[in-house]
Amino acid sequence: MSIQHFRVALIPFFAAFCLPVFAHPETLVKVKDAEDQLGARVGYIELDLNSGKILESFRPEERFPMMSTFKVLLCGAVLSRVDAGQEQLGRRIHYSQNDLVEYSPVTEKHLTDGMTVRELCSAAITMSDNTAANLLLTTIGGPKELTAFLHNMGDHVTRLDRWEPELNEAIPNDERDTTMPAAMATTLRKLLTGELLTLASRQQLIDWMEADKVAGPLLRSALPAGWFIADKSGASERGSRGIIAALGPDGKPSRIVVIYTTGSQATMDERNRQIAEIGASLIKHW
């Protein structure tokens, strides 16, 4: 067993022997300050990975656009099909120029040879490739089937209704393509630590998230040396920005953090900075 597999395998073990964890309200002060700075709603939740206990939250049951954070859930659904023998990570999918949508930095380079399901999930999570996400959605039956998968997991909140890039419209009070911080955190925890996926698939999912290449300005920018993070960011219209992450010190994840914001007129750089500052406060008061 590799060191990485050993780390994931021990998560349920540590759950039975973990020391108590305590929240620090200073982080919530920073979350509220971020709302003021951005002139927008901010949703935040911090969940103990082992016990599932909510350590701190702000607007945990308000809806926010999922943006590209849905791609982790999508690849979780794909992996569940792999575990059930209904899909193969090595299966090659061919597509055409007509399938390409905006922001497809990986898939646009493989029009001649296609990409495997594994490569598409990697592109969707690590590079947030939109065409990769659409091709993967097709393999499971579309957005409604992803919503059904989540319902079967016990998540009756999170929903995907449209494809890339339309799902990023982020219209106020529109429940399409939205989640709540509490629902997303719970669902992510189930995918990473529960029995829904095999150990190999849980490890694959967290490996893809750990290799995320487009979330550098967010929580990763505040991460001390030696800390672990596996994450997925998202951005969409109407000043929306978000990130879902499993992180912790000593090279292993111990908490789930979900941050969403929407309705801001601030620049992308400012939205990134506010999320990074929330992360810095979280780490300082860990």
Rank of each mutant, 00 (worst) to 15 (best):
M67R: 15
S201C: 06
I93A: 02
A183R: 05
Y44I: 08
D269G: 10
P224S: 02
R92V: 15
Q97R: 13
T126Q: 05
R59T: 05
L191K: 00
I54R: 06
P20T: 15
K144N: 09
D231N: 02
P181L: 03
S122N: 12
V257L: 05
V21T: 14
G39D: 13
D250V: 06
E46D: 01
K232G: 00
S236G: 15
I11C: 09
G43E: 00
V214Y: 03
A123G: 05
A16R: 04
R238C: 13
G194C: 11
S264A: 08
G216K: 07
R92D: 05
V21N: 02
M66A: 02
R7Q: 14
Y260F: 12
D99R: 06
L136V: 04
Y44L: 06
T198M: 08
P60G: 14
A15N: 06
V82A: 08
V214R: 05
G248W: 05
T138R: 15
D212E: 04
N168D: 08
P20R: 08
K30R: 09
P25H: 08
H285Y: 14
I11K: 06
E35L: 00
Q203L: 09
D177G: 01
F17I: 12
E166W: 08
R255S: 01
F149V: 09
M184G: 00
L10C: 12
V82D: 02
A77D: 09
A124V: 04
P65G: 02
S236M: 02
V101G: 04
F14I: 13
L150M: 08
C18A: 14
N130C: 04
L223C: 09
A211L: 08
T178F: 01
V29E: 15
L150C: 08
E61K: 14
I283N: 00
T186H: 15
V78I: 12
T262I: 07
L111R: 06
T138D: 14
T112V: 13
K144R: 14
K32N: 11
P60T: 11
R41V: 05
F22G: 14
W227L: 04
P60N: 06
P143Q: 01
G85Y: 07
S122G: 13
L247P: 05
E46A: 08
A84E: 15
R202V: 07
P165K: 03
E277L: 11
D83R: 01
P217R: 07
G226D: 07
P224T: 02
E270S: 05
A16H: 15
I125G: 00
I206N: 04
G239T: 05
E87W: 02
D33R: 14
F70V: 06
Q274R: 09
W163V: 07
A148T: 10
P60V: 09
A123T: 02
L219V: 04
D269S: 12
K109T: 08
R7A: 13
E166M: 11
V82N: 03
L136A: 03
L137K: 00
I140N: 01
T147L: 02
R189C: 10
A215D: 02
E145V: 11
F13Y: 13
T186S: 14
K284S: 12
A84K: 15
P249C: 03
V82C: 11
A266D: 04
L73V: 11
K252D: 05
T261A: 08
F149C: 05
S57H: 08
N98R: 13
D129H: 00
L223F: 02
D207I: 09
L218H: 02
G239V: 01
T186A: 14
P249Q: 04
T147R: 05
L146A: 03
E145I: 09
I275N: 00
R238M: 12
W163T: 07
P249R: 04
A84I: 14
R59H: 08
P60R: 09
T198K: 12
D207G: 14
L196R: 13
A215E: 03
F14S: 08
A225L: 11
A200R: 14
G242V: 06
P143S: 02
R81S: 10
D250P: 04
S254N: 09
D161R: 01
Q86L: 12
V82W: 05
H5G: 08
E61L: 15
P253L: 06
S240D: 14
S221T: 11
A9E: 06
H285N: 11
L55V: 09
S96V: 14
K109M: 10
T138A: 15
A235C: 03
G39S: 08
A15S: 15
P12L: 14
R271P: 07
T186L: 12
V29L: 13
M66R: 00
T267V: 06
Q97V: 15
L100M: 14
T261S: 11
F58S: 05
L135C: 05
G263E: 05
A235D: 02
T107G: 03
G194W: 05
L19V: 15
F228C: 02
A200H: 12
L73A: 09
A211G: 10
N50T: 15
L150F: 11
R238F: 11
M115A: 07
R271Q: 14
D99V: 11
S80R: 13
E61T: 04
N168V: 03
I243P: 01
E56N: 05
P181T: 01
R176W: 05
E145D: 08
I3M: 08
M127N: 07
R202T: 12
L146R: 02
G52V: 03
E145P: 05
R91T: 05
A225F: 09
F17L: 10
N50K: 15
P65Q: 04
K109Q: 11
K252T: 12
S236N: 10
G39V: 09
A245C: 05
I54Y: 10
A148V: 13
A170C: 13
P249A: 03
C75V: 12
R202P: 01
L89I: 10
L74A: 03
R238I: 10
D177A: 01
Y103C: 08
F149R: 05
V157L: 07
R7S: 10
A9L: 11
Y103W: 09
R92C: 07
G226K: 07
S51I: 01
L223R: 01
R162H: 08
A9R: 08
L111E: 05
E270G: 03
L223Q: 01
L19F: 15
L282R: 01
K32Y: 05
P20S: 12
E175R: 06
S236L: 01
Y95H: 02
K109G: 13
V72S: 02
K213Q: 15
T178P: 00
L146S: 00
S104L: 00
A183Q: 12
I229L: 04
H24F: 03
R271L: 14
I11Y: 15
D33C: 06
R162Q: 06
E166A: 12
A124D: 00
P65E: 04
L223T: 10
R238A: 13
H110Y: 06
R81D: 03
L219A: 01
E62K: 03
N168Y: 03
T116I: 03
N173R: 11
A222M: 08
K30Q: 08
G242N: 02
A9D: 05
V257C: 04
M153Y: 04
